[in-house]
Design a protein around this nucleic acid. Structure first.
Lengths: 212, 212
DNA sequence: TAGATTGTTAATCGATTAACAATC
DNA sequence: TAGATTGTTAATCGATTAACAATC
């Protein structure tokens, strides 16, 4: 079987979602074509960088003078991320952050679907939060396996994060999005992405210091 | 006045919050010393990289064989980020995500303090969400100026994000943490950090594809 | 045609990793 | 002393930017 997917540089992959958001906005405004220089200006990036990024992901390429067909370009990026087949995820920990994420509209646009929430809180179990059912922790494995869920989101307090992580791994979860401020120990083949919100904000506030 | 702060590479700065979280955990476990190889193993990073990172931020340096004094190292990182003087921030948009962030415990550990929330919802105005008062949008400027708030968090629906951004800039906000999926237009001197949660999750789910 | 834009090759830049001497 | 660890210099790697020919 051919490896028909070009290897796209890591940094480029990180920028693709931003391009996608920007391009979708332009499409809504009624544009049908878009050029690299316009995208670069809009997102405050280097022109050549954008050109290379778009070239890397675009199947049909752009045309001198007119640029890219906006619709095709959007489809190419969506295809790269596999948005054609929606992926399911579970959220464990339906506190403030967890329930905010359950209801997060933005996921839809990126081919993601939260199928269920899990919590230890008896009052929550059996109820629905923003239309998603909440189950007890001990049903994680069963539900993940039945519904082929490979993505887990951890929004429990720090001290329970590792425990939940272990349960997820046993349940067949392959990728974990971790909001707890804990470094999770996982087998080699499992991918963990730590979302340290406080750290992000700290970095932002740090950047003020320099200018001020 | 001396530029007594070494310029630390951008990528190193990004890792510092992770070191901090890890080191604090080790301190709680009762360790008094820590070496670069231990940190590297714990966070799955290259040993030399950690050594360079720690050397960049540590004032007193480490010692062969014993490593760094854990307490000092933590203080050095905290000092670098300026955690000695807590910084205030406001949140505009007290929906699910906004109210989750208001209550987010993690901010404390990073020298950040949310002083107030703002919303258009009449039912919310005047109430408290997790102990923070909610004000109407038209009081953003007054409150930011009175309390010297330079950090703004945007958690409103996409279509209002630019409008809120403009109000913040006029109110003297210097750094904006944007959760809306919109590219904000700001003057040159204002820093915007986009937190595209859906995109992060998309990247994570993408990484599964490769291994699976 | 003239000019804007693409795609690509080459040059630069910064970050990571390797190698190693110095130290306790 | 032997061995682990630091700090630093050099080599490698990857990403960004510059330069430019090809194209419509």
């Amino acid at each position: 079987m051919a490896d028909d997917e070009k290897t796209i540089p890591k940094q480029t992959v990180k920028r693709l979602p931003d391009y996608l958001t920007f391009l979708r906005g332009k499409a809504e405004e009624g544009f049908t074509n878009i050029s690299a220089p316009v995208v670069a200006k809009g997102l405050n990036l280097n022109e050549v960088q954008v050109r290379k990024d778009l070239a890397a992901v675009s199947e049909s390429g752009g045309r001198p003078r007119t640029g890219y067909l906006l619709r095709d370009l959007i489809l190419d990026i969506e295809k790269y991320f596999g948005y054609d087949n929606v992926k399911d995820a579970i959220i464990v920990g339906v506190g403030h952050l967890g329930s905010a994420l359950i209801s997060f509209e933005g996921f839809k646009n990126h081919g993601l679907n939260v199928v269920a929430g899990f919590d230890t809180n008896e009052k929550l179990i059996g109820t629905e939060v923003h239309g998603k059912k909440i189950f007890p922790i001990d049903r994680i494995s069963e539900i993940c396996k039945n519904f082929n869920v490979y993505i887990g989101i951890i929004t429990v307090p720090d001290e329970y994060a590792q425990e939940i992580c272990d349960i997820m791994v046993k349940a067949g979860v392959l990728a974990i999005w971790n909001f707890a401020q804990v470094h999770l120990k996982v087998p080699e083949n499992i991918i963990v992405q730590n979302e340290n919100l406080a750290a992000s904000l700290a970095l932002l506030s740090k950047s003020i210091k320099r200018h001020h």
